[in-house]
Amino acid sequence: MIKEHKGMTLIVKTITRLTVGLILLYGIYIVLHGHLTPGGGFAGGVIIALSFIHLMLAFGREVALKKVSRPIAGLFESIGAVMFLAIAIFGFVGGYFFLNFFVDKGTPFNLFSSGIIPLCNIAISLKVGAGLFAIFTALVLLKVKSKGEK
């Protein structure tokens, strides 16, 4: 582990190794509790993306891209968008676009409640998380290329 010369110092790498899992879990928590507590798909998606960006900042681009490559990020982004649209279209079952089609809405303030909203949150988090990660990698790529040209 110490052999890796890319990225930042050992202190940063160690702290990152300890925190990155917690950040990812926290992001997932925010997404899943989006209908109960402040936050939701967008905020949670950003936090999930940040955990990977954190890896990239500490260990260098290659390590993060080994975990999530750009095609995979693109795939997740498209799946998020299609999933959100599919949830909206499933509303047609009850006659309306975006209808909350679950008959059993659950008990309020339980994790499994409020119909399609948690599903929408998951779709949004996929789209936002993968999108933000892809944008960040694109920016990093552009920077490296312009340095190489000089």
Binding site: G74, L75, E77, S78, V82, L85, A88, I89
Partner: peptide, 12 residues
């Protein structure tokens, strides 16, 4: 729905 759906399917 139709243009957004085609857009996402094409990107997928």
């Amino acid at each position: 729905v139709v243009p957004l759906g085609t857009a996402f399917l094409i990107s997928l």
